[in-house]
């Protein structure tokens, strides 16, 4: 059987899933559902971004909404005030957030994990305070209105359904790049650092450099998510980027399980959809997220998909070297001492 057929078969669940996502808006022409799917998409990007830190390299970042907000405001300011084309503003959202990630990561990543946690939370708060109070630049509590709909290489993304396809494309790109990244030499170094920083260094991994790089990449993706959000709702205010937003992301990772590609997707889908679909829950949305954080840690600390091999990933895009031993038998695992 040719390789391409084998890969296709092996990946059939994922291909079917993607196909379902593509035809979904035609089968369910409900605008409200489409809107929920867009939000899920945005949170998948955010959760994947945070997953790189919390899941793969094992850094405790709890203020991710800071980068999300910076991305949203960057793209909004650039399109509304500077009149930049969407494509450029979108990219800048990621780059600016990445630059902030560098500025925050460089000094704090040398320190123990707990300091990083505090620093990221403080960063989130500072971003929020600045957005709220720098009236002349950010519009203060009123935020920025009239953010244009995206136009991508001549394609005007007008309707919700069109925006859905735009987000779907972004999500697929993010998941694809992330899956490849964590399944490369780079990703192995990240996981090695998570597992044993000292041993990783002894093998020649420049731990601080990798931490900073992972931090910047993660911030970049969060910034991209911010731009996706800003151009969808077309009105942003500081309240969308508070610490609560960061905590939602933590709940998503806790539920889905971090350190793999599937967990953040499932976590985002469940936690974003539930309050939207069950109106009764909507009012208690944050309560739900808080309880998820407490209860999941008691009953299944690794989350729904945690504990799987970390590179549970999308084989379709990754026809890399795979099965490595062609000997007679794969032996059963040995009991630990």
């Amino acid at each position: 059987m040719p390789q391409i057929v084998k890969d296709t078969l092996e990946n059939s669940p994922m291909i079917l899933f993607l196909a379902a996502l593509v035809i979904a808006p035609f089968v369910i022409p409900n605008q409200y559902i489409v809107q929920i799917m867009v939000f899920i998409g945005i949170y998948v990007i955010l959760a994947q971004s945070l997953n790189l830190l919390n899941g793969y390299i094992g850094l405790i970042a709890i203020g991710h909404a800071g980068f999300y907000g910076i991305g949203a405001y960057t793209s909004a300011k650039l399109t509304v005030d500077a009149g930049l084309p969407f494509e450029l503003a979108f990219l800048c959202a990621g780059l600016v957030a990445g630059a902030f990630g560098w500025a925050l990561g460089r000094p704090t990543l040398r320190l123990e994990g707990i300091y990083l946690a505090l620093a990221t939370l403080g960063f989130n708060l500072i971003v929020w305070l600045v957005l709220l109070n720098w009236n002349s630049f950010t519009g203060g509590p009123l935020g920025i209105k009239g953010i244009p709909r995206p136009t991508i290489l001549g394609w005007e993304v007008d309707t919700r359904t069109e925006y859905y396809f735009f987000i779907l494309a972004v999500v697929v790109t993010v998941v694809f790049t992330m899956a490849r990244l964590v399944n490369s030499r780079f990703g192995r170094a990240l996981v090695a650092i998570r597992e044993d920083q000292l041993a990783a260094a002894a093998m020649g991994v420049d731990v601080t450099r990798y931490k900073v790089q992972a931090f910047v990449i993660s911030a970049f993706y969060a910034g991209i998510a911010g731009a996706c959000y800003a151009h969808f709702v077309r009105y942003i205010s500081p309240d969308s980027f508070t610490m609560l937003e960061s905590f939602i992301l933590l709940a998503i990772l806790a539920l889905g399980g971090s350190g793999n590609m599937i967990g953040p997707i499932v976590g985002a889908a469940i936690l974003i959809a539930i309050p939207e679909l069950f109106r009764a829950v909507a009012e208690y949305r944050m309560l739900l997220y808080g309880l998820v954080l407490i209860i999941i840690m008691q009953v299944r600390p690794q989350g729904l998909f945690g504990g799987h091999h970390y590179n549970l990933h999308l084989r379709l895009f990754d026809r890399g070297p795979r099965r490595t031993y062609r000997g007679d038998a794969f032996l059963p695992s040995e009991a630990e001492q």
Partner: peptide, 8 residues
């Protein structure tokens, strides 16, 4: 994470 859950 649990303490964050409690705070929320």
């Amino acid at each position: 994470l649990v303490t964050i859950g409690f705070s929320v």
